[in-house]
């Protein structure tokens, strides 16, 4: 390669590498601001300001959803499988809202450690499948549970 071109190439590579490092450091320093929401573990650890508008996200805990029969008020717990946060929300939930489904909620922590949401967004994962497949999978996993339960029962009766 021609020496001038070699020199130009080195300059270009240095430019891109330097820029990448600068941007990498900046985004690393700002990671708390770039994260869209707080995890339940962060909230449980007390890293979250009280009575400031924040977002919290996680999985809606199975069996935790309580709908108020008279109003649109809903109470549920959001978990990341190591900690969980109680939430309440008044309003219409997105179609995808369900137990075991990911959500991101906007609102404030109150003094008693409850999250009062004023907006709930549904988060979905990268898995797509036809309804029949989803049903079959669910049946299979329930079947496994049943089989495991039966085995446990058999073991316990055997003792």
């Amino acid at each position: 390669m021609h020496p001038i071109r070699k020199k130009r190439l080195t300059i270009v590579l240095f430019l891109v590498a330097g820029l990448a490092i600068a941007v990498g450091l900046t985004t690393y320093a700002l990671r708390q601001n770039i994260n869209l929401f707080y995890d339940p573990s962060e909230i449980a650890a007390g890293n979250v300001p009280v009575d400031v508008r924040i977002r919290a996200g996680g999985m809606v805990e199975e069996g935790s959803v309580i709908r108020d029969p008279e109003s649109l008020k809903v109470e549920f717990r959001v978990t990341d499988f190591s900690a969980s946060v109680p939430m309440e929300y008044v309003g219409i939930l997105p179609d995808l809202f369900a137990e075991g489904q990911g959500i991101v909620a906007m609102g404030r922590m109150d003094a008693s450690g409850r999250f009062i949401a004023d907006q709930v967004l549904a988060k979905h994962d990268e898995q797509y499948m036809p309804p029949e497949v989803a049903d079959a999978l669910e049946r299979a996993s329930k079947g496994q549970h049943k089989a495991a339960d039966a085995q446990k029962a058999a073991e316990s009766t055997a003792y």
Binding site: I34, N35, L36, L93, P94, D95, L96, V104, Q119, V120, L121, A122, K123, H124
Partner: peptide, 12 residues
């Protein structure tokens, strides 16, 4: 809009 419940969110 129909899946998340919003048109836009300032995520990364």
């Amino acid at each position: 809009k129909p899946t998340w419940g919003t048109w836009w969110v300032w995520d990364a």
